[in-house]
Simulated scan of single mutants.
Amino acid sequence: MEPPAKEDTCTYASDWVATKLRWKLTADSAEVKALRTAAGGCKNARVTFRPAA
């Protein structure tokens, strides 16, 4: 679960989480673990989202 460009990993992980939150989607334990691993080096990453109507 990584983007093609390594330098985009933090943006990719943040966008993934934002999409899950926006649409109230769940994540199984494997997905949570993969997201934590991908975002592990993202010290200043922020997740912003607008809930879907």
Rank of each mutant, 00 (worst) to 15 (best):
T37F: 07
A34W: 02
K24C: 04
E7H: 10
A30C: 05
A38Y: 00
E7Y: 05
T9M: 09
R50D: 02
A13V: 13
S29A: 13
A30M: 10
F49V: 01
S14A: 15
P4V: 03
A5C: 01
E31R: 00
T19R: 15
A52Q: 14
T11E: 14
R50C: 00
T48D: 04
A34I: 00
S29Y: 11
M1T: 03
L35T: 04
L25H: 06
V47A: 05
A30W: 11
K6M: 03
M1F: 05
T48P: 02
D15C: 05
R22A: 13
G40C: 05
P3A: 00
V17Q: 05
W16I: 08
K6V: 02
C42Q: 02
A53F: 12
Y12D: 06
A13M: 10
V47E: 02
V47G: 03
A30F: 11
T26F: 04
T9V: 13
P51I: 10
P3V: 03
R50M: 04
A34V: 01
R46E: 14
W16D: 06
T11L: 14
A52L: 09
M1A: 09
F49H: 03
C42R: 01
L25V: 02
T26S: 04
G41A: 07
A27L: 13
N44D: 08
W23A: 06
C10K: 06
T37W: 12
K20Q: 13
N44L: 08
K6Q: 08
L25S: 05
S29Q: 15
A5E: 10
T9P: 04
F49I: 02
D15I: 06
V32Y: 08
T9K: 11
L21K: 06
A52E: 13
T48S: 14
T26A: 01
T26Q: 09
A13F: 04
A34E: 06
D15E: 13
D8V: 03
A30K: 14
K33T: 12
A53Y: 13
T48F: 04
D8Q: 12
T11N: 14
D8L: 15
P3H: 07
Y12H: 09
S14C: 13
K33G: 02
R36Y: 12
Y12F: 15
P3L: 01
R36V: 08
L21I: 03
P51K: 15
T26V: 01
V17A: 11
E7C: 07
L35E: 00
G41M: 06
D8Y: 12
Y12C: 08
A52C: 01
V32W: 09
C42S: 02
W16L: 15
Y12K: 06
K33Y: 07
A5R: 10
A18I: 01
V17C: 10
L35F: 07
A52Y: 13
T26C: 03
A45I: 12
W23N: 12
A18D: 00
T11A: 14
P3S: 11
E2W: 09
V32D: 00
L25N: 01
L35W: 04
A27D: 00
P51E: 13
T11Q: 15
T37S: 11
A18P: 00
E2Q: 09
T48M: 10
T37E: 15
A27K: 03
A27H: 07
D28E: 07
F49W: 10
S29L: 11
P51Y: 12
V17G: 02
W16H: 14
E2R: 07
